[in-house]
Design a protein around this nucleic acid. Structure first.
Lengths: 186, 186
DNA sequence: GTCTATAAAGAGATAGAC
DNA sequence: GTCTATCTCTTTATAGAC
């Protein structure tokens, strides 16, 4: 049996990088081929439905990372709520390379995009928001306000990524996350 | 002299709608032709450098609207600061159709995008942020904090647009704007 | 200024050898 | 599982008539 040159994880990580930086339409098969080191036909062997399949695989990978590294730890009652929030910030900084990488949720959700992908991303947003809501409630914040703060936190995250990509001010994301951290439980 | 079927303003408005909803790569000449009612060659007559020219024209149109309708009114000393802020909110709601339309600054600023366009958008962001900073300072907020609030307001705007596009909750933008309005001068 | 027609390049996708 | 080679379709762009 012939060898896989790249394991699935590295392969999808390479595809991810192209999609998040250039969007769905901006990611060409030539680029995807180049960054993975695989010819187009090899990509089709692994992703029979082509580019749409690759994008779906990327989103599936992102969502499993998101759940394992961020959403589940937010609900880990063995750790103090403030620490869980701080750990979340650390994972966010890694995941977005301190704001130098885009959010796939933003770039893969334009008009004409794959509805299956949008549905998955909606579910993940809901799950993340709900985990944050529960965290605030744990510390005595009322449900309605906890929900608002959770949503506002994620809005700030997305907005900071957009603005940092525009201004190239490397501290935008970090500043925003720390600002929200200070207000989340108060 | 032959007639222009569409005046420049309506033409650019139609192009704008395609670019903001589908991004640069996602906007094809076929679509741009369809929404304007002009054949591709007619578009090339008006925009000799093609799609790149169209995107630049769209951004020029947006920036003149932004300055006339939002940035300049923010500095109009004849109107109370709170009213100026409230008027800004009203213009934002119109401009983004209460969150149903994207921000062009987000979708035209991916990797590989036109640097001329990015530079223009950066300038406009700076101008808007500076106008908001001055407004907060007018009401006694210190410079450093005024700048932070101005930036945070624009981050929230961009983030709310991203999240509303994802969740399709029609109240996301409005709720965010009102929340920020309550905190801006305090 | 707009049109029809067409060219040229690049996109996504497939066939078949190894 | 990967490759070379090829195909088809769409995309961007141009030529030239009206």
């Amino acid at each position: 049996m012939a060898q896989k040159i790249l394991d699935d994880e590295s392969l999808i990580a390479a595809l991810f990088d192209v999609f998040r930086n250039r969007g769905y339409e901006g990611a060409t098969l030539s680029q995807l081929s180049r960054v993975t080191g695989l010819q187009k036909s090899s990509l089709y062997h692994r992703f029979p439905a082509g580019k749409a399949d690759m994008a779906r695989a990327v989103v599936l990978g992102v969502r499993s990372q998101l759940h394992a590294q961020i959403i589940e730890p937010l609900g880990d009652a063995a750790v103090a709520a403030e620490i869980r929030f701080a750990n979340q910030i650390a994972r966010i900084r890694e995941f977005y390379a301190d704001g130098r990488k885009n959010c796939i949720l933003n770039v893969l959700n334009l008009e004409g995009g794959d509805t299956e992908i949008r549905d998955m991303m909606r579910q993940d947003f809901d799950a993340w928001r709900d985990a944050l809501t529960a965290l605030a409630e744990e510390k005595g914040v009322g449900h309605r306000q906890a929900l608002q703060r959770a949503e506002h936190f994620l809005i700030t995250l997305e907005g900071a990524l957009v603005i940092q990509r525009l201004t190239a001010d490397e501290h935008t994301l970090l500043r925003s996350l720390e600002h929200e951290q200070g207000r989340f439980f108060e």
